[in-house]
């Protein structure tokens, strides 16, 4: 488990504090560290689930989780650099690991490719269904609002009746 240490990046004296500026600097620092991967951490993702701002209404809630899914569904199947921390027999161990990887690569590649395909298809299906339901609910809400307006507005009722005198 990795730990992080935050080096102080701000030097503020006792006089003339501008918290808005300070918060802006904090956000810039966060943006830089995020780009450097310092906040790519499953523990943060778990904690962030409690952030009510992301869950203010149903649509935002679903958008938030769909965005999370989009970030997470594809397993990285690219090749990677094989290294060895131990200095003693280092090059030998690297060669051994490379050989093992060459033997396994074909199988894992097939496996993870299929998994990525399934994940992608499932997410697409979920997004399509969600979009369809969202549009349908919006249409129904607009229709209910229109009907409510008609019920509350007797003038329109009279007008409707006069427009159709025989009904």
């Amino acid at each position: 488990m990795t730990t992080t240490t935050t080096t102080p990046i701000f030097t503020i004296g006792a006089e003339g504090i501008d918290t808005a500026k300070l918060v802006e600097e904090i956000r810039q620092a966060v943006a830089e560290k995020t780009a450097a991967g310092r906040y790519a951490d499953a523990r943060i993702a778990r904690a962030e689930r409690m952030n009510l701002v992301n869950l203010k209404n149903e649509e935002e809630f679903i958008d938030f989780y769909l965005a999370g899914l989009q970030d997470a569904i594809f397993v990285d199947i690219n090749d990677f650099e094989i290294v060895e921390r131990r200095a003693r027999l280092g090059s030998l161990l690297v060669a051994l690991k490379k050989t093992i990887w060459k033997l396994l690569k074909f199988y894992t590649y097939r496996l993870w490719s299929q998994q990525n395909l399934v994940n992608g298809l499932l997410l697409s299906a979920l997004e399509t269904t969600e979009h369809r339901h969202r549009t349908r609910i919006k249409d129904l809400e607009a229709r209910i609002a229109g009907l409510e307006k008609e019920i509350r507005n007797p003038k329109s009722e009279i007008r409707n009746k006069s427009e159709f005198p025989n009904e």
Partner: peptide, 12 residues
Amino acid sequence: RNYPEFEESLSL
């Protein structure tokens, strides 16, 4: 707004 900003602020 989020955890990273919380961590930076509290560390500060």
